[in-house]
């Protein structure tokens, strides 16, 4: 499917739960509410025409007043790709784990939990991942976090 056909197909099947954003380039970008994440993810994987069985990437973005969790999934059979994001509250960020649907998400979610402090519901293994075992300085990928020895580069 071309990106435009894919947009229509997704809107036709899941239009009530996914809304198209205009920020995506090359590949359509949708937004999903946190409550719908698991049902939408399951339909994306199991629908015969979509069949997003391959999990590419998951990364969080700290927008200072909210968090975004950006998922990229692909289909091995149909060879198309889709991005979607979930907006999370900044004070109590919490999201469901999709590792039952895409086992590959496991480590991506651990990383998101550790570096951004986003709680992952129903994740089986939220333990220290990339940071040192004795780390006690918060969540370093948040925008308001500065390393103790941080020095800004001179502006060009």
């Amino acid at each position: 499917m071309t990106p435009d056909e894919l947009k229509d197909a997704v809107a036709g099947k899941l239009g009530d739960k996914m809304s198209l954003l205009d920020t995506g380039r090359m590949v359509p970008m949708f937004e999903i509410s946190a409550a719908n994440l698991l049902t939408v993810a399951e339909s994306l994987r199991d629908d015969a025409a979509l069949k997003f069985d391959y999990f590419c990437n998951l990364g969080a973005v700290d927008k200072t007043e909210r968090f975004e969790a950006v998922y990229s999934v692909a289909s091995i059979v149909h060879k198309h790709r889709l991005d979607f994001k979930v907006i999370l509250d900044h004070d109590h960020p919490e999201i469901d784990s999709v590792q039952e649907i895409w086992p590959a998400a496991n480590w991506y979610e651990r990383e998101m939990w550790e570096l951004f402090g986003i709680n992952i519901r129903n994740h089986h293994n939220l333990t220290r991942f990339l940071l040192p075992d004795d780390w006690d300085q918060g969540n370093p990928m948040r925008r308001d976090w500065d390393a103790p020895d941080f020095e800004k580069l001179p502006e060009l």
Binding site: T23, G24, M29, C56
Partner: peptide
């Protein structure tokens, strides 16, 4: 301009991707 994209290429170790916002 404002926007976001996830680009991926075939590397010798598999899918190498970068997401930029």
């Amino acid at each position: 301009p404002e926007g976001e994209t996830y680009a991926r290429v075939e590397n010798s170790r598999g899918e190498l991707g970068v997401y930029i916002q």
